[in-house]
């Protein structure tokens, strides 16, 4: 099990760096909400949130140093979440809704 590396101890500096980045990105997301990006405001907000979540998953949750199987679980979870939202929305936006507006 040489690949498992389960005793890897992440240096404290990495945690501090992620923490500072998360605080900065929180500021950026508040700033971005006040800007007019047309139809893309939500995409910008979700993009920033995805970047923050990725840092938390990789560093705080140690997935960067995790086993391949753990990493596969994480990716599978995200893929199935995207399937859930994409298939549902493809239905809702491709036919009129009687009570819409």
């Amino acid at each position: 099990m040489a690949s498992s590396d389960s005793h890897h101890v992440v240096p404290v500096g990495a945690y501090i760096a992620v923490f500072l980045a998360l605080v900065a990105f929180t500021g950026i997301t508040v700033w971005a909400a006040g800007q007019d990006f047309g139809a893309y405001n939500t995409a910008v907000a979700v993009g920033i949130a995805v970047a923050k979540a990725t840092m938390v998953v990789l560093i705080f949750m140690h997935v960067k140093w995790g086993t391949k199987l753990t990493q596969l679980y994480v990716v599978a979870g995200v893929v199935f979440l995207l399937i859930l939202i994409a298939i549902t929305m493809s239905d809702y936006i491709s036919r009129p809704w009687p009570i819409m507006r």
Partner: peptide
């Protein structure tokens, strides 16, 4: 720790989607 960080991630998405969508 994994559980606690996951709860943090949920809030990272909830904050812009609930609090910040009416700001323009």
């Amino acid at each position: 720790g994994l559980y606690w960080h996951f709860v943090d991630i949920v809030w990272i998405f909830l904050f812009p989607l609930l609090y910040l969508i009416g700001h323009r």
